[in-house]
Amino acid sequence: MLKDITLGQYYPCDSPLHRLDPRVKITAALVYIVSLFFVRDFPGFAYVTLCLAVLVALSRVPLSFLFRGMKAIFLIILFTFAANLFLTDGSVLWQLGFLRVTSEGLYRAAFMALRLILLIVGSSLLTLTTKPMALTDGIESLLSPFRRIGLPAHELAMMMSIALRFIPTLMEEADKIMKAQSARGADFESGNVLQRAKALIPLLVPLFVSAFRIAQDLAMAMEARCYRGGEGRTRLHPLKMRGRDRAAWILILLYTLILLVQAGWIVF
């Protein structure tokens, strides 16, 4: 089970989207997420969906992979949809006891659900096409202008990449502790949710202890390899803006402009 975990949810493939500089992709994802909140009507969503569909096609990520991430938040979407559907006032379309569907409610429910789905598909496209390491490099580089006001950009990125690196190690450790405790009669599998959650506490304590021990070992190993912060470091894979990245910047700008005009935020 441990052998096939994927870090993050990267989909390895060589597509135009995979090859883009992570900084461009992170900026694009942020712009895209914010832009969703500027959309006012369904034609606006049609435009966003079309752009997203083009990106998905370019990324060569299979649709099944793309929607796998949706399963986890399906309940949230359903809940949002139901809440908007039943709790909005307006002209009544249909009523059964205290349940009442209004035309405004239907419109808002569809609107919200669509916004959530687009939000998730769009942002998972970022993590599907960018290696975790490239992602942290990109974040470091994007945050580095804020170093002047005291933001530890390099340290944050280093922490993220170490966290990613040690997910499998800590999972193995948890597995080991769980087996050791099962062997001595601990029960992780029966009982209701609350009882099972309680059974995990004796697992968490030793896991925390070993996390600290690992951190100490790692810190020493990093020092032994001359690590002394981001100052004066060079990179094996330095980030470099190429022609395609510059083209992407222009497309991002174009996308934003069209969206703002369509939604009536900019009027000529």
Binding site: S161, R165, T169, D217, L218
Partner: peptide, 9 residues
């Protein structure tokens, strides 16, 4: 061996 490798690659 696990606690001295820094990167996931």
């Amino acid at each position: 061996p696990d606690n001295q490798l820094v990167s996931s690659i």
